[in-house]
Write a protein that binds this DNA or RNA. Structure first.
Lengths: 148, 148
DNA sequence: TTATAAAAATACCAAAAGGTCTTTTAGTCT
DNA sequence: AGACTAAAAGACCTTTTGGTATTTTTATAA
């Protein structure tokens, strides 16, 4: 569905927010260990998130990543757009030039529903709503990946 | 949604089938021109489709690609599975290990609907149904790509 | 105020996706 | 049979994605 970079960004940020709720401010080391993602790659991704203003960080001893509680919740869509643009939930399945409501490709009508479903999902859900669910649900088996 | 290879396979095969309906058997030259796709890349893709038995071809003078009318219709899902596997409509959005009905990730329930929608679409639609729509609809503006 | 811990920056590396070009093989039409 | 045509095969190339390792900067705690 989404690419690795987006996936790691989701998981890392949900973990960070959930630790923030518990009064902690995890660093990279702790974060990648918790979500079992590649260390330096994830660091790079989080750096970008900080630069984009999606996430805050403090350097030095006792530092780490955190979300500013005063700022509005961060929708998944913002992250997806920043990392991979709109191509995962936009455009024609056929890759056609002029495919739209007036001039639909054979798959157009079936696909608009799917597309809207994806858009709705990532617009509605935020890192914060997910982190809250994650904290509540003891069954969730951490944020461990598929094959690890 | 799907990758380039899948996209070119869809478009090329729909074009070929629609020409077949009109009693013609296009070669790659004609095909890539019609759908405006990269010549050799598309050739390679169609070769693979032939090897997989999805499509037939004849070499030599007057040769080209065609679908055996006796064989059953070819669902898009067969093509997608052969080219990119199930990852576009399967697996956890978060990339989580143990995400399923019993042990869902926070996005699981919203996502199963989307996933099922995609699966339904590519299971139902075939190259043949699309080619028929394509032939009928004069508005369809050929099978030209987005940016070409 | 200095040692240290942590993020930021930078440079590289590997694999996969996307794409091109040339040669070979196998038909078919004359 | 032979010329020609078109698909098949295979060798490359480029870009993007995914990932690693090292160095630099900066904040803070002692």
């Amino acid at each position: 569905m989404f690419n690795k970079e987006t996936e790691y960004a989701f998981r890392a940020m949900v973990y960070i927010q959930s630790r923030n709720y518990a009064g902690h401010r995890p660093g990279i080391e702790e974060t990648v260990k918790a979500i079992d993602a590649p260390h330096f790659y994830t660091a790079k991704i989080l750096q970008r998130m900080v630069r984009l203003g999606f996430l805050q960080s403090v350097k030095g001893k006792g530092g780490g990543f955190y979300f500013d509680a005063d700022r509005p919740d961060l929708p998944l869509k913002d992250i997806v757009m920043a990392i991979e643009g709109d191509r995962s939930f936009c455009g024609c399945v056929f890759g056609l030039k002029h495919c739209d409501e007036q001039n639909p490709c054979p798959l157009h009508h079936q696909f608009v529903e799917i597309r809207e479903g994806i858009d709705r999902m990532i617009s509605t859900q935020t890192i914060q709503t997910l982190a809250q669910k994650y904290v509540k649900d003891e069954n969730m088996d951490d944020l461990l990946p598929r094959s690890g």
